[in-house]
Each structure stands twice: as C-alpha cells, then as structure tokens.
C-alpha cells in the first residue's frame, strides 16, 4: 500500500468497531472485578507491609523489605504464571480469576506499601507527639490521626497504582480470564482487523482511566478541605 492510497477506513473501521463493541464491553465487568479485588488486596496488604517495614523490630522489618524487593523486581506476568501454572504442580490449583486477582493484588501491595510508608512518614512527627500527650494509643493514633492525613498525601500515587492495575489486567487474558483484552483478541481472530479492534480496546482503557482520574480529582478536593 502506498501512502497516497491511505484512507482512514483502513486504519479504523468504525462500523466494524461499533458492531463488535457490545461483545468486547462484555469483558468490562471482569476487568473491573479483577482490578477492584486486586486493589483491595493491595491496599490491605500494602498497609500491613508499610507498618512492618516501619517497625523497630528487625524480624518484622526485614521480611517485609525482602517481599517488597522481590515483587518490585519481578515482572507481573512471571508472577502470574507462577501462581497459575506453577502452583498446580505442588497441588494448589487456582481459578484464573483467583490467580489474576491474587497475582495483581500481591504485586501491587509492594508498590502500595512504599507509597503508604512515605505518606505515613510525611505526616508531621508532632502529630504523633501530641497524640501521645493526649494518651491516645498507637492504634488509635494511627486510625484517627495519622491515616486520615496520610490518605490525602497518598491519593495521587495510589491512583497511579490503580490505573496501572486496570491496564495490567489485560495480562490476565494470557491465563484465560475473559476480560476486555481477551474479548478483543477473540474478535480479532474472527474479523482479522487487528488495527481497529486494538485501537478500540485502547480507547476503552483510556476511558476507564479518565473516569478514575476524575474520581481522583474529587477525592483530592474532599481531602484537602483542611489544608
């Protein structure tokens, strides 16, 4: 094809895209499910890791450090394969959805832990001191005083993690999770129009991330009312 013969229809076949949109969107619930479950696992485990990592006791701090280092230093896809293809060999069979959620969640936890740790540290030390002077316990201080302030600081980087997560769930297609990207691949197999379909799914991911960014703005406004 010479460039002079280029027409937009070859790049993006709008009619075909429209026709297959409902089928591809059928994967959105799975994409969101994996994203949200992973993020939940990541947030809970990431907070625990952050607290362990900030501990004065080496036997709490050290394993958390190793875990974070391992997860940050290995590809998400490799870890996913270990869970889905590796574990059955030692007799632990996970469903594709479980493996994906667990894999992404445990992996994100490492990043979230680092975000949490720096956010917790960025809350002024004087807050801990005045809480102590009021005789608040460590956990009450954390829950009522430190976390609400750290959350505000953590929102932008946590949103990044979540966006990354939403996009990374496309990797789950490789282990047969019927999410957006897998659905797209099916359509490509049927229509042979890889360009149109992959652009289409890219736009869908983009739209999802724009919604997330919008929610981030809202949250930031809500949490900054007192700064």
């Amino acid at each position: 094809m010479k460039l002079t013969e280029f027409n937009f229809g070859d790049l993006f076949d709008a009619a075909l895209a429209w026709e297959n949109l409902p089928f591809i969107l059928g994967g959105i619930s799975m994409t969101l499910a994996v994203s949200f479950i992973s993020m939940f696992i990541g947030l809970v485990f990431g907070l625990i890791l952050a607290l362990l990592r900030g501990s004065k006791r080496w036997f709490l701090r050290w394993p958390a450090g190793v875990y974070i280092s391992f997860m940050r230093g290995t590809p998400m896809l490799v870890f996913l394969f270990i869970l889905y293809f590796g574990l059955p060999i030692i007799g632990l069979e996970l469903s594709a959805l479980t493996a994906a959620s667990l894999g992404f969640g445990l992996n994100s936890a490492a990043y979230i832990a680092e975000i949490n740790r720096s956010s917790l540290n960025s809350v002024d030390q004087g807050q801990w001191e005045s809480a102590k002077a009021l005789n608040l316990s460590y956990w009450t201080t954390l829950r009522k005083i430190i976390l609400p302030q750290a959350t505000r600081i953590a929102i932008p980087p946590l949103t990044n993690v979540f966006m990354n997560l939403v996009k990374s769930t496309s990797l789950a297609a490789v282990i047969t999770v019927p999410e957006l990207f897998q659905k797209t691949q099916i359509v490509v197999g049927r229509t042979y129009d890889a360009m149109t379909m992959y652009i289409l799914v890219a736009l869908i991911y983009w739209a999802l991330c724009m919604i997330i960014a919008f929610i981030q703005d809202r949250l930031e406004v809500r949490f900054s009312k007192y700064v």
Partner: peptide, 10 residues
C-alpha cells in the same frame, strides 16, 4: 501544650 500547637488539621 507544644510550641507548634500540633493540632490535628483534619
């Protein structure tokens, strides 16, 4: 009571 107040800003 502290020099820098240390009120809880939230």
């Amino acid at each position: 009571v502290f020099q820098h107040f240390n009120l809880f800003p939230h």
